[in-house]
Simulated scan of single mutants.
Amino acid sequence: MTHPKDAEFEEIRRIVADIETGFNTKDAELAVRHFTEDGWSVGVTGVRIAGREPLLDAHRTGLAGPLRDLYARYRVGEIAFLRPDVAIAQKYAPATDAQGRPIELDHTMIALYVLVKDGGRWQVAARQNTMAPR
């Protein structure tokens, strides 16, 4: 494993923060901005969506539909650099109300991100969302 600079950790945390903001403000473009062109995501239902444009379409549909009244507070857990240009990061996303106050549900969301650095910029290559009991 490599020993990255603090700036690398912060950039990855900023990416996850942008995705959180996109989710909570229902801004599909912001929610997928940091994905690679061929990036993919697997949702809690097990559906895999590949490519930035299909991801954008799915986010537009989901955020305007079944996810429109859902909110979460994201917390980045462990970040590990597998190589200087490849990292994995865990994200925990307990549910909140629209004002960001925690709400009690019997589950929470956990995600694993695979990030790649290309042209000096970190991007999300893959994300796997999992629903976990609280």
Rank of each mutant, 00 (worst) to 15 (best):
D6N: 10
D6Y: 07
A7W: 01
E8G: 01
F9W: 11
E11N: 07
E11M: 10
R14G: 02
R14D: 13
I15D: 11
A17T: 07
A17Y: 06
I19D: 08
I19L: 13
I19Q: 14
E20R: 02
G22K: 07
G22L: 08
F23A: 06
N24D: 07
K26A: 08
D27Y: 06
L30H: 00
A31D: 13
R33D: 04
R33H: 12
F35Q: 02
F35N: 02
T36D: 08
E37F: 02
E37L: 11
D38E: 13
G39W: 01
G39C: 05
W40C: 11
S41F: 11
S41I: 06
V44M: 09
V44N: 08
V44L: 08
T45L: 07
A50N: 03
G51T: 05
R52I: 10
D57W: 01
A58I: 00
H59N: 12
T61L: 12
T61K: 15
G62I: 01
A64P: 04
A64W: 05
G65S: 08
P66C: 00
L67I: 02
D69G: 06
D69C: 02
D69T: 14
Y71W: 15
Y71C: 03
A72W: 09
R73G: 00
R73V: 04
R73H: 11
G77Y: 03
G77H: 05
I79D: 04
I79K: 01
A80D: 12
F81I: 07
L82E: 05
L82C: 01
P84H: 10
D85R: 09
D85L: 04
D85T: 14
D85E: 15
V86N: 00
V86F: 05
A87K: 02
A89K: 04
Q90T: 11
Y92K: 01
A93E: 09
A93F: 08
P94F: 04
A95V: 02
A95L: 14
A95Q: 11
T96C: 08
T96V: 05
D97S: 04
Q99F: 07
Q99C: 00
Q99H: 10
G100P: 04
G100H: 07
R101V: 06
R101N: 14
E104L: 12
E104Y: 05
L105R: 15
L105D: 07
T108G: 13
T108P: 00
I110E: 12
L112H: 13
L112R: 13
L112E: 07
L112W: 08
Y113H: 15
Y113M: 07
V114S: 11
L115W: 08
V116R: 11
V116E: 12
G119C: 05
G119Q: 03
G120E: 09
W122P: 03
A125Y: 08
A126P: 02
A126Q: 13
R127L: 12
Q128S: 07
N129K: 04
T130I: 10
M131V: 11
A132C: 05
A132N: 03
P133R: 13
